[in-house]
């Protein structure tokens, strides 16, 4: 088993050993449940989770920073970063391991929401289609993967979890707002570039049930930069 996997497994298990992990999952599922009950489960509507995916996408904005905030901040605050960085693990393995642990946590957090699809299938005359359902989940998971990368970077920059949370929330809100409003208000020459980097348009495509491989690659590729910067931040700390 690689060092990255070992670190990822420890990170994932730590979420379930601490109240903060359970609380984050419970809060997310409670809010998702409310959205499902109020916006999806309406008699006479087409069996679709589209409204749920739309709302859950916004719910991820505060929830993901809550997952990522402790990745490095807590290690730096408590001093456990020293035994970690003096082990034979490389910085890249440490960053990637912690990030993957958080990604798995996100996946596990989304997993129980499959229950909504099952409930919808049971109560509807025509069950929801698999394609839009898979695309809908990608519309949550892929931006979530990017949000976690940003959260990992913010956590690597400070030993204060609250600052890490607020920092990533602020950056993500800025990106989401720029992505949603930018194409409408930016000068014409910037439009193609803004459209290309727009999260909103890609998420909308997924919401429509379109699984475009370019979008999948885009989100993974966009996650690389914050992770590289997190590695740089860790190295910079090491260099004193």
């Amino acid at each position: 088993m690689s060092t990255t996997t070992i670190i990822a497994r420890r990170e994932l298990s730590s979420y379930f050993r601490l109240p903060v992990g359970w609380f984050t999952i419970a809060l997310f599922l409670f809010l998702c449940g409310c959205v499902f009950a109020l916006a999806v489960l309406e008699p006479g509507r087409v069996a679709s989770l589209r409204a749920f995916f739309g709302a859950a996408g916004w719910l991820l904005l505060p929830v993901v920073p809550a997952i990522s905030m402790r990745l490095f901040s807590e290690e730096m605050r408590s001093g456990t970063i020293e035994p970690l960085i003096t082990s034979p693990a490389r910085e890249s393995s440490i960053v990637l391991g912690k990030y993957l642990g958080a990604v798995m946590m996100l996946g596990l957090m989304l997993l129980p929401t499959l229950l909504y699809a099952w409930v919808l299938a049971k109560v509807s005359a025509r069950p929801p289609e698999f394609g839009p359902l898979a695309a809908g989940y990608l519309s949550l998971f892929l931006p979530g993967v990017f949000y976690l990368a940003v959260g990992t970077l913010c956590s690597a920059l400070t030993n204060n979890q609250t600052l890490a949370f607020l920092g990533s929330l602020f950056i993500l809100l800025a990106i989401m707002l720029a992505s949603a409003l930018g194409p409408g208000i930016a000068p014409a020459w910037m439009q193609p570039a803004l459209r290309w980097i727009s999260f909103d348009a890609r998420i909308q495509d997924f919401a429509k049930g379109v699984i475009d491989l370019r979008h999948v690659i885009f989100f993974f590729a966009a996650s690389v930069l914050p992770l590289v910067l997190a590695g740089v931040a860790l190295r910079a700390r090491r260099l004193g």
Binding site: G79, T80, E82, P83, S87
Partner: peptide
């Protein structure tokens, strides 16, 4: 080099949840 080193930092930082 780190494979040859065992390090106990001051105040023994550990993961309390483990």
């Amino acid at each position: 080099a780190r494979r040859h080193i065992g390090y106990l930092p001051e105040s023994a930082p550990l993961y309390p949840e483990m």
